[in-house]
Design a protein around this nucleic acid. Sequence first.
DNA 1: TCACTGACAAGGG
DNA 2: ACCCTTGCCAGTG
Length: 108
Amino acid sequence: MGAAYIEQVHDVTRLVPAGRVTTYGAIADFLTLGSARMVGWALFNSIRADDIPAHRVVNRRGELSGRNHFATPGLMQEKLEAEGVVVQDDRVRDFDRLFWSPTELLHQ
DNA sequence: TCACTGACAAGGG
DNA sequence: ACCCTTGCCAGTG
């Protein structure tokens, strides 16, 4: 996995609407390349890029598993709450309702 | 080369 | 809904 793969993950992440969340696995499925772990790895390589809404990517249970990789431990939650997403115990409330899959782009 | 570690996930119990 | 196992695969030492 190289720079091209990282760019693809970043591009998909940018498509996640504000106030919605997606998962590592959903992005991996959409790309049909790499794995959920690789998506996490690609996002880790996005720390410096402020224009990537990495806070909208959570694990399959809606947990903020990436929170410790943001500038501050609370930043991921703060960004989500600024978009109206309620976080409770490091987990997105109403995750099923807020989940957004990139495959929805194909159903338009 | 080997072993271990993760921003993970699916399936069973 | 939780716990455990298995599969996953790039980095790291």
